[in-house]
Amino acid sequence: MNATSRLTLTTALTGFVLAASAASAQDFSGQTLVVGTWGGDIERLLKEHAAAPLEAATGAKVEFLLGGSGDRMAKIYAERQNPTMDVTFQNIYEAPQLLADDLVVAPDPELDMYKNVWEGMNDGCYAMSLVGLGIAYSKDLVSEPPEWADMWNPDYKGMIAMAPYPSSEGDGLLGVAARLEGADEHDADVAFAKVAELGEPALTYTSLDEVFALMEAGEVAMAPMISGYVLAGLKEFPGIGFSFPSDPGPVLIRDMVCQVKDSPNPELAQMFIEYALSAETQKAYAEEIYFGPTNSTVELSESAAADTINSPEEVDSLLALDWPWLIEQRADWTERWNKDIMGQ
């Protein structure tokens, strides 16, 4: 054995010992982290970019629980004495509610992952992705990317599709409508009267494809929709465009990732969230499904940058609604929406 090979052997052995000790310091094998999130692309991206590296580094298993965020809210509240879910993805208004009810761990301002997120966005939980409520439109019926006010053009009366209420889309539309009348969402009468002027919606959609098919057929002119999935879906529908309006700007909507309080695997949960908020995962979200990164250190390709909200100026141009106040109105507004907008 010559000097070089002896050196190599020593290095390899040292490396092995170090790796083994590192692994034993963070050996979570046999433990299962439960993560609640939406199925489809989100689940796939989280599996590839957060679950896989976490499993490799810790020996733990990551199990995904798929469904809507409302189902996860119900689960967290029902299990609050004895939580089984460690990490959960919630929407912009559910996260602060969870923190207010003391069911999630408050985001820690000392952590790097907290500091990398755009300022003021870790509201309730950590901000995961940024999307904006804009307008999807039929290029046949609407010649130019529309502004909000164009939805009230009498030519399009009854040809606007809407999401079910309550939803970020519905609250966003009410907030925009109030602003077009010089008020804001705190003036519910103005907001509802203005949205009611749109007439009965052409349809209340449960899937994006449903809206897109009707738009291509000229039955639906416009729909307030959330960028992200829509922009990803549009690649298959050349007759449909998506507009980020400017007066007012798109409504800021973000997904949040939360660590459930007193969950079985707190360390793993925090590690998972670190992976989820990492520049790599956030870049994949932006490049593949056009969800804008909340991590301000992410650098995107030109095409992804054009379709996502990712610069400080874009973030500033977004319309931020008073979500805590909107949550308090939820029950009343749902009844009002059912009666005034859906005419029931």
């Binding site: 409302g70 189902d71 119900a74 939803s167 939820r330 029950a331 749902t334 059912n338």
Partner: peptide, 10 residues
């Protein structure tokens, strides 16, 4: 359904 899954007024 609207009350249970969307409004969360169980």
């Amino acid at each position: 359904y609207q009350q249970a899954s969307l409004v969360l007024d169980w």
